[in-house]
Structures are given as structure tokens and as C-alpha cells.
């Protein structure tokens, strides 16, 4: 599991590689909270190297969105399996996916 944070002004991109599940979601949440606390305007989550995401991982992302309030949290580069999970939970729109 690896988490990478890139900042471009007040916009942050967090890349996650590995599995976003019961075991690993805790660390991911800590990382996201850290980034959000730095008062960013938008958050992009790059899941290109995320193998799969379970409900624990989803919850972390949803919590992040709640924290961000009106500001955008966008998920990009999700593979078909991840996309399907997010779609099944009706969250595509929330995370700016088509």
C-alpha cells in the first residue's frame, strides 16, 4: 500500500495504490484527513493503482467528502471493478464520475 500526495496550489491529488479495504482503510483515512486539514479547495483521488475498494474504503471517501462540504472531491482513473462498486452504492455523481 502506498499513498502519494501532490499539491498544486490549493488543489490536492492523493494517489492510492494497493487495496482499499478493512485492513488498509484506516491509514488512508489518516492521510486524507491530513490533506484536508491543510485547507484545500479541491481534492482529487487518483485510484489508478487501487486494486479494489470495499465498503470500508468507500466510507473513508464519503467521510472525506463530508469534511470538504461544498468543495469538490473527485475520483479519477478508477478501474471497472472499483467503478462498479461506486456505482452500486449510487455514488458516481457524488465523486464527479460519469
Amino acid at each position: 500500500m502506498a499513498i502519494n500526495v501532490k499539491k498544486d496550489g490549493n488543489n490536492a491529488t492523493v494517489s492510492y495504490s494497493g487495496r482499499l479495504d478493512t485492513t488498509t482503510s484506516g491509514d488512508f483515512q489518516k492521510a486524507l484527513n491530513q490533506v484536508i486539514s491543510e485547507s484545500i479547495d479541491s481534492l482529487t483521488v487518483d485510484l489508478r493503482d487501487t486494486d479494489f475498494i470495499s465498503s470500508k474504503g468507500i466510507r473513508v471517501l464519503v467521510a472525506a467528502k463530508k469534511e470538504m462540504g461544498e468543495k469538490n472531491v473527485t475520483i479519477i482513473n478508477a478501474n471497472p471493478a472499483v467503478t462498479e462498486i461506486i456505482r452500486n452504492l449510487g455514488l458516481l455523481r457524488l465523486f464527479g464520475m460519469n
Binding site: T22, D51, S54, N79, A81
Partner: peptide, 20 residues
């Protein structure tokens, strides 16, 4: 196929997380 495997992995995580 990869995407099927990923979904299965997700399901295992959910089920085991629950039982545990």
C-alpha cells in the same frame, strides 16, 4: 479476469470483516 477477481476480493473483505 482481473475485474471479476477484484470484485470477488471485495466480497471476501466484506464477509470476513463482518465475521471478524
Amino acid at each position: 479476469p482481473d475485474n471479476v477477481r477484484r470484485l470477488i476480493d471485495t466480497a471476501i473483505d466484506e464477509i470476513l470483516g463482518n465475521i471478524t
